[in-house]
Design a binder for these strands. Structure first.
Lengths: 359, 359
DNA sequence: TCGGTTATCCAAAACGTTTTGGATTGATTA
DNA sequence: TAATCAATCCAAAACGTTTTGGATAACCGA
């Protein structure tokens, strides 16, 4: 193993040299002096401008390479008055394991950002200081645009940015503004898929565990659920609806409440996979045979879904791709300020597994 | 719901005003003109320097607040020649669900970074361009320091940064350099805990599924495993060692290989939780009663561990805290270049659950 | 010969800060 | 009275780019 990168391993002399190179930062001025041209010319040569002699340009590039010149990002950005940086403010709920969704989403954004030469600035703010964080980033000109996610129906972040005409793109719609860029999954359609499937399996007594309806996703899915049930002549009984946020613990506890009722549901629709896992565990605890006599569905198709016992029937969303596409939409609007906002509604897919079988 | 943040909701006039404020960026010069003082004085007043008259300073601050002045971050950084930014280059394996570890680690780093006023620059590079990415960030002066994780025994990133004397702190040790800041868990001790427990449960035929031994963590744990087994007069048979990277699929497949041998192990030590989950599934597939006649252990105590069926015996590491502490160590060394590197070896904890019971 | 191109170059301004090295004033001290 | 000191202020330089608005010289066609 030592052979790999061995030039770095026992570096007595090498290190010193490198260290000197670093402490002496090469600037345009250095190159200019060395070549005997002005800073202007050097800058233009490196930018491949047409008004510099070919030979001069070559010589300049040669010297630049030889000196190991790398432009100073800060200086460039100050001059250009743009940061080439996209900001994302992390939601408090995305901080731990509970939300496997987030790391994939971030990766989708990050890979595209790197690809297009943008930096990704990730900020963690406490919920109560969330708006201050946005304001600081905007007014300190630290980012060129934002990615938003987990939107609310009336979303203060979106409202703020929209009012400033500050670029952003969001995963999830917002009711309180219009003309903005977003991607969303068709939650209503997703619920239709789920309900159709459950009904086909013989379920009529269907409950759900969902987060606050202030969250846009939840609201859309909830309405979709009600509507789809109605299409089958079924009703979503108030007693069969429980609020639970996002983690297994909530799913477990709320499912227990539902299942301990006099006439419990035969199926529970979890609004995300973690909730569904919790519900499965609750049912197991009560000795139910999950999949047969009691069904559970999730939402997200997280990796665990396929491996859980029983494997979870859930809705698949291409989170990684959504992140990437969102970033592309944002960059689009950064490059062309007049560009019409793009809006994308994705068709989700139902992944049927063993957690839902015929009654 | 509309009452909350209603100042943003129906903003006809408000929006315009805001928008004007933004397009007209307030600078020190603006304040200076308004107050009738020089830019220098304004700058010094806002920095609470002692050589500006109290009344003047107050007046300046008043006007600054009134105009909504926020310093231009780029200009400040260019002048100060520091970026106040910490970089983290994401390992390709951390991109999806498979590694719940990552989002918690990142959150630990990010929250502290925000707390100390540092930006967190998250970069996604393809593995083959990894070193280029580091070089660009270093030489373009885009970050003041790095957080490294998932170190190799001979780690090119650490070697590079170390040779340049560029600040970094890593989660995991590196063999190829010394005198650097790191946090690591005591993997040898962790394995001792696991082996002692398994032996106490009556296991003598113990196998393992571990990642490449080039990875420092894996190497340490592997050696710890061998040593701990030896302490009980046991040997780690070559046939009972399989390489698997990090996900359930690997765990599943490699566990099948182990279990289909003529004399299969009665316990499998997974080098992380995902591997362990896969192994559990494999055993279930073969009809084994996991926990009773066959034991599995994990490493990380990811959230799923407690909820898996059976719940997983595993090693607990405070990943979130480690991230935060790492960032603090890094900032420490940024502020005091001469500061001795700190090195922290954590005592891991064994969380015993039902996946390991008496034979 | 002259006006008009073209090719090549550059000084200076600009981006918005912080810092350096005084300058000015008025009061205090020797 | 002159020297010293403290308080208050600021012009200019610096950070390292990019861009603006020419300048210069050589060449071309009429």
């Amino acid at each position: 193993m030592l052979s790999k990168d061995s030039n770095w391993v026992s570096c007595g002399q090498t290190c010193l040299e490198r260290s000197e190179i670093r402490s002496y930062m090469v600037t345009l001025k250095d190159i200019a002096e060395r070549v005997g041209r002005s800073v202007t010319t050097v800058s233009r040569a490196l930018a491949d401008c047409s008004d510099v002699n070919k030979e001069t340009a070559e010589r300049i590039k040669e010297v630049a390479a030889q000196l190991g010149y790398v432009p100073n990002t800060l200086a460039k950005r100050l001059q250009k008055q743009s940061t080439d940086t996209i900001g994302i403010v992390v939601h408090p709920a995305s901080r731990g394991y509970p939300e496997p969704f987030f790391s994939e989403f971030l990766a989708g954004i990050g890979e595209k950002a790197t690809h297009y030469g943008y930096d990704l600035l990730v900020t963690y703010a406490q919920e109560e200081h969330q708006m201050d964080t946005y304001r600081q980033l905007v007014e300190g000109r630290r980012v060129d645009g934002f990615i938003l996610y987990r939107t609310l129906r009336d979303d203060p972040r979106a409202n703020y940015l929209h009012s400033l005409n500050f670029p952003f793109a969001s995963f999830g719609q917002v009711e309180s503004i219009d003309r903005y860029s977003y991607i969303d999954e068709d939650g209503e359609y997703a619920m239709q898929l789920i309900v159709n499937h459950l009904v086909a399996m013989g379920h009529t007594r269907i409950g759900c565990i969902c987060p606050s309806l202030e969250i846009m996703h939840a609201y859309i899915r909830y309405n979709g659920l009600v509507k789809s049930l109605a299409a089958h002549g079924l009703e979503l009984e108030a007693a069969l609806v429980r609020e639970g946020y996002f983690d297994q613990k909530d799913g477990y506890e709320q499912a227990l409440v539902l299942l301990n009722q006099p006439t419990p549901p035969t199926a529970i629709v979890g609004f995300n996979d973690m909730i569904a896992f919790g519900a499965i565990n609750a049912a197991k605890t009560l000795g139910l045979h999950v999949g047969k006599e009691f069904a559970v569905t999730g939402f997200d198709n997280s990796m665990m879904a396929a491996y859980y016992r029983p494997p979870l029937t859930t809705i698949s969303q291409p989170i990684f791709k959504i992140g990437g596409k969102l970033l592309e939409m944002l960059i689009q609007s950064l490059k062309d300020k007049e560009h019409e906002p793009s809006q994308l509604l994705l068709r989700p897919q139902l992944i049927i597994r063993e957690s839902t079988q015929s009654l």
